[in-house]
């Protein structure tokens, strides 16, 4: 797909660049740009967080980002430019973790492409988040299984719970 930019950015080297993302997805044909910016927040599930480390399996993550771009293109069915960038390494509170930007002729397509891309990045890309807490403790986040059989089993489990209530 033309008009697709994917990147993994090591925090020690640079921060994610929102202006560059918006510039990249701009086009004379496009009247709508939607973006999603994920930042590191100072708490999670009642615990004070001091920072996050992101671990990535980079070659596969970039392939997954490109596949997400292709899917977004097929899904919106309109001209699209898309930017997907994720940070790697140790991040402080307020640092940018992920930047998605989608440019399309109209707003509906831009919102849909942006939403599809961020949800797919969260659920499908080989990226892991480790939270660091005030007391010096650290923990890897729970997360979504990429194992096909396991995903299927968990889907049934969730369906069972839903019926149970």
């Amino acid at each position: 797909m033309d008009g697709l930019h994917v990147a993994v950015v090591e925090r020690r080297v640079a921060t994610l660049d929102v202006a560059a993302a918006l510039d990249f997805v701009g086009d004379p044909r496009f009247g709508g740009i939607a973006s999603f910016i994920g930042r590191v927040r100072d708490h999670n599930v009642g615990r004070a967080v001091t920072g996050i480390s992101y671990d990535l399996f980079e070659p596969l993550a970039l392939r997954v980002f490109r596949a997400i771009g292709e899917r977004a293109q097929a899904e919106v069915g309109a001209p699209l430019k898309l930017w997907i960038a994720h940070a790697k390494g140790r991040l402080a509170i307020g640092d940018l973790a992920v930047v998605i930007a989608a440019g399309t002729p109209h707003r509906d397509e831009a919102f849909r492409a942006c939403r599809l891309a961020i949800e797919a990045v969260k659920h499908e890309a080989p990226i892991w988040k480790q939270e660091h807490y005030v007391d010096g403790d650290s923990a890897w986040s729970e997360g979504c299984s990429l194992c096909e059989e396991q995903r299927e089993a968990e889907r049934h489990e969730h369906a069972g719970h839903a019926h149970g209530h």
């Binding site: 992101y54 990535l56 399996f57 994720h86 992920v98 990045v121 080989p126 997360g143 299984s145």
Partner: peptide
């Protein structure tokens, strides 16, 4: 190969 635990990006 790589072994990938459940993912938590974004």
């Amino acid at each position: 190969l790589a072994v990938l635990p459940p993912v938590s990006g974004g």
